[in-house]
Simulated scan of single mutants.
Amino acid sequence: MQEGHVNNFALNFDSGRLSYCGQDCRRIPAALQKLYGTKTKCLDLSYNTIETLKGLEHFGRLEELILDNNKLGDSVTYPYLPHLRTLSLNNNQISDLEALIEQISERFPSLTYLSLLSNKACPNQLSDFDKDDSDYQRYRYFVIFKLPHLCFLDSRRVFETERREAAVRGEFMRVRRPAADAIHSPTQTYSRSQPQARPLPVDLAALGKHKGAYGKCHYKYTGKHSEGNRFIVNSDL
Rank of each mutant, 00 (worst) to 15 (best):
T86D: 04
K39I: 12
A180L: 14
D74W: 02
R27T: 15
K54M: 10
G170L: 04
T189D: 07
R26W: 12
L11H: 02
F13N: 04
H5W: 06
H225Y: 08
L32W: 03
E171N: 08
R230Q: 14
K120C: 08
H225R: 04
P201R: 08
I232C: 11
Q196M: 15
D181P: 00
L35V: 10
D133W: 02
C42D: 00
S110Q: 13
G212R: 00
P82A: 14
G55P: 01
E3A: 09
L35R: 07
I232V: 14
N229G: 09
R27G: 07
K209L: 13
Q125R: 14
I101M: 03
D236I: 11
R17Y: 08
S75A: 15
K41C: 05
D181W: 10
Y36K: 02
R198D: 08
L200P: 01
F9K: 11
Y136K: 06
K220C: 15
L62T: 03
L126W: 03
Y47C: 05
A31F: 01
R163L: 09
R157S: 13
P186F: 10
L32P: 00
L84W: 01
Q188F: 05
A180M: 14
G22T: 03
E3L: 07
N92M: 08
T189K: 11
N69I: 02
A205S: 13
K146C: 12
E165A: 15
